[in-house]
Structures are given as structure tokens and as C-alpha cells.
Amino acid sequence: MLRMLVRGAAGGALATVALTAVSLAGDQAWLMRDRPSGRVAPGPPPRRRARPTESLTHFGFGVASGAVLCALSRGRAGLPLGVGYALAAWAASQRGWVPRIGILPPDARDDSSRTAVLAAGHVVYGMVLVATVNHLSRP
């Protein structure tokens, strides 16, 4: 069981890095910026900087989520399970604790481009998590 949790945590770490890469790419494309309603000024919208505790918490959540999926799937998760798991975690967070502590508004009130990037990042998270866990679980 401990090996399974370690494999899941490793998969979660790698998957969180991949998710972060998608978010950074979206940020570079100006898709992750705050867009006040009625903004007409040219150029990129203002940037919201993540606090270090947010980044560390997000990484820890990704690692722990990987360990949980690996334990639940007994080390062999299919791609649909991984993607569904990641999207469910994202949706629950966006409608729950993330807006409550003020990191982002609920996705229903957030900018649709940021919502799309975050959803895509979580799809990538699920794919990388499953691929890593399945690779590490080979005999």
C-alpha cells in the first residue's frame, strides 16, 4: 500500500507540473489575467500574482490527489477515470473552497478564457497522472 501511495504521489507531482505548464502558457497568451468588466484600455489585462502559499498548497493538493487516485484504483487507472477525477476535483474546488478564500471567483463569474485554461490544465493533469501511475506500476 505504501508503494502505491508513493507512486500516486509521484504521479501527482509530475501531473501538477504539467498542469502548471498549461496555466503558464495560458497566462502568456493573456488568458489567465483578471479582466474587469467594461475594460477598454488596449494591451494586456492586469496580472494577478499567486502568493507562495497558494502555489505550495496547490502542489501539495496535486500530490495528495495523485496518491488518493492511485489507492482508489489500486495502481491501475484508466484514462477516462483519471480525466474525470481531475475535472471533478477542479469543479468541486472552483465551486467550493477556492472562491471562499478569495483565490478566484466562482467559475460561473470568472472570465471564460481562464475557466477554459484551468479545465484544460486539469484534463492534462488527469492524463499525466494516469500515464505516470500506470508506468510506475509495471512489474
Rank of each mutant, 00 (worst) to 15 (best):
V133L: 06
P106V: 10
V17F: 12
V123P: 01
H122I: 05
S55G: 09
A91E: 12
V117Q: 04
S137Q: 13
Q94M: 15
G82V: 06
D107I: 03
P45F: 11
S73K: 06
A13T: 09
P106E: 05
A91S: 13
R100D: 01
T16P: 00
P46I: 05
R109P: 02
D111H: 08
D110L: 11
R76Q: 14
L2R: 10
L87W: 10
V68K: 04
D107G: 00
A88V: 13
S73E: 13
T20W: 08
L69F: 08
T20C: 03
E54F: 05
L14P: 11
L2A: 10
A120S: 14
L14D: 11
P52E: 10
A64D: 08
D110A: 13
D110C: 07
S113V: 03
S55N: 07
T20Y: 02
T57A: 14
H58W: 13
W30R: 09
D27I: 03
A18W: 03
G96S: 06
S23Q: 14
P139D: 12
L19P: 00
R48F: 04
D27H: 07
T132A: 06
P105I: 01
Y85G: 08
L87I: 13
V40G: 09
V133P: 06
P46M: 09
L87Q: 12
P44T: 03
L31Y: 01
H122G: 07
A15L: 06
A92E: 10
S112Q: 14
V117M: 04
A64N: 06
A119P: 01
H58Y: 11
A71L: 14
P36Q: 05
G26W: 04
Q28N: 09
P99M: 01
A131Y: 09
P52T: 07
S55H: 05
H122C: 00
A67Y: 09
F59E: 09
G8Y: 00
S137C: 04
G8Q: 02
I103C: 01
V68C: 01
A131T: 12
R35V: 15
P99A: 06
T132W: 00
Y85P: 06
A91K: 00
L129P: 05
D34K: 08
A89I: 12
L2N: 09
G84L: 10
G66K: 08
M4T: 15
A88D: 08
G75K: 07
P36F: 05
M4D: 07
M4Q: 13
A15H: 03
P36I: 02
R47E: 15
A88T: 14
L136R: 09
H135L: 15
L56W: 12
L19S: 07
T16F: 10
